[in-house]
Amino acid sequence: MGHRAPAYRDRAVVRLGGEIDYRNTARVLGELRKAATRASILEIDLSNVTLITSDGAMIFFDLVRSAPSGLRVEISGATDAVRRRLSSLGVDHFVHYV
């Protein structure tokens, strides 16, 4: 018997760009939390992110901690440098790369 993919009611996509650091984490986190309330899948498109600091990456921990139960967080478009930063902080343990 095969595994069935979970049924998600809808998807929200948030496209981020530029630098994500201590100066804008509150704004970015607010945007992500708002989108998370509207969907079962939250795709965060990082293709236009040029830099993410440790402070900036912490928004993913805060997002998952405060997200509705069952939310699937997907990261798309992350550059190698951004993905290395996220991985070094352990973000890989609770997000999915697409």
Rank of each mutant, 00 (worst) to 15 (best):
54 S>C: 07
72 R>V: 04
78 A>L: 00
41 I>N: 14
64 V>A: 15
78 A>N: 07
52 I>Q: 13
70 G>Y: 08
40 S>I: 00
73 V>W: 11
89 L>G: 01
88 S>Y: 03
49 V>N: 11
67 A>S: 15
41 I>H: 15
69 S>Q: 14
48 N>H: 13
92 D>L: 06
90 G>L: 06
68 P>M: 01
66 S>H: 11
68 P>R: 14
64 V>D: 15
61 F>A: 15
44 I>V: 15
85 R>A: 04
56 G>M: 06
53 T>Q: 05
44 I>E: 09
82 V>T: 13
41 I>D: 15
43 E>D: 13
54 S>Y: 03
78 A>V: 00
85 R>K: 09
76 S>V: 03
67 A>N: 14
91 V>G: 02
74 E>L: 02
64 V>M: 12
79 T>W: 06
71 L>Y: 08
51 L>Y: 13
73 V>G: 13
60 F>K: 06
59 I>G: 05
87 S>H: 01
50 T>Q: 07
41 I>Q: 14
60 F>Y: 04
89 L>R: 04
74 E>F: 04
90 G>F: 02
76 S>M: 05
69 S>H: 11
92 D>K: 03
55 D>F: 02
63 L>W: 00
55 D>H: 06
72 R>C: 07
47 S>G: 08
40 S>K: 14
81 A>T: 09
47 S>H: 13
50 T>V: 09
93 H>Q: 04
59 I>F: 03
62 D>H: 08
80 D>P: 09
53 T>F: 03
62 D>K: 06
79 T>I: 00
86 L>S: 05
59 I>S: 04
93 H>I: 01
42 L>N: 10
62 D>A: 12
70 G>S: 08
76 S>K: 08
42 L>A: 10
71 L>M: 10
49 V>K: 12
73 V>F: 07
93 H>C: 06
72 R>W: 01
89 L>V: 02
61 F>W: 11
42 L>V: 08
84 R>P: 00
76 S>C: 01
46 L>E: 07
62 D>G: 08
83 R>K: 12
94 F>P: 02
78 A>D: 08
83 R>V: 00
80 D>H: 12
72 R>T: 01
79 T>D: 12
85 R>V: 09
57 A>P: 03
47 S>Q: 14
40 S>W: 12
40 S>R: 14
63 L>Q: 11
77 G>R: 09
83 R>A: 03
91 V>D: 05
43 E>A: 07
74 E>W: 09
39 A>M: 04
50 T>Y: 00
92 D>T: 08
56 G>S: 13
58 M>E: 11
43 E>H: 04
39 A>N: 11
86 L>T: 00
89 L>W: 04
89 L>I: 00
57 A>D: 02
73 V>M: 07
87 S>C: 01
48 N>D: 15
52 I>K: 11
42 L>I: 02
81 A>S: 15
68 P>K: 15
92 D>V: 01
60 F>N: 10
54 S>V: 05
48 N>L: 04
45 D>N: 14
51 L>F: 11
41 I>S: 15
89 L>H: 03
93 H>T: 06
91 V>L: 05
70 G>L: 03
83 R>Q: 08
90 G>R: 02
87 S>A: 04
42 L>W: 10
69 S>F: 10
66 S>R: 15
